[in-house]
């Protein structure tokens, strides 16, 4: 059996992954909307999330899949279509993202 050769790689995987992912901007918009919604409510049902983020089913699906791949959001399957919640890292992200809106609020006053 011929074995697949995997080259040593210090940072090449990162660079190719980030370049590839930057071009998927459509699913990123849906992903960020999901993150914003989850930052306000700790967890949300998939069906309710769909109505809140207001994107097409395909974009929502891509955005959610993308977030699960990054490990920022996890979905727990249940009888009602699944429950979405932030992982520990996702929670830290949204806490930092809130600094942006806090700055905006302070700027307005």
């Amino acid at each position: 059996m011929e074995q697949k050769y995997v080259p040593d790689d210090d940072f090449g995987s990162f660079l190719s992954s980030v370049q590839r992912a930057v071009n998927q901007s459509k699913s990123h918009e849906a992903s960020m909307r999901i993150m914003h919604t989850l930052s306000q409510n700790k967890e949300e049902r998939v069906a309710e999330m769909m109505t809140q983020v207001k994107v097409s089913w395909a974009d929502f699906n891509d955005g959610l899949k993308y977030l699960e791949e990054t490990g920022l959001v996890e979905m727990q399957d249940d009888d009602e279509g699944g429950l979405l919640r932030l992982t520990d890292e996702g929670l830290r992200w949204t806490q930092t993202m809130k600094m942006d809106s806090n700055d905006d609020d302070e700027g307005e006053h």
Binding site: D9, F11, S13, F14, L15, S16, S17, V18, R20, A21, V22, Q24, S25, H28, E29, S31, M32, Y66, E69, T70, G71, L72, E89, R92, W93, T96, M97, M99, D100, D103
Partner: peptide
């Protein structure tokens, strides 16, 4: 590295301040 790349791509396309993006980059 792949997983990290995806997180950073999310930041590149996000509409938020440069400062918060830098903090999230550093945190991750």
């Amino acid at each position: 590295q792949d997983k990290f790349g995806k997180k950073i791509a999310l930041l590149v396309n996000a509409t938020m301040s440069e400062r918060v993006k830098s903090l999230l980059l550093g945190l991750t």
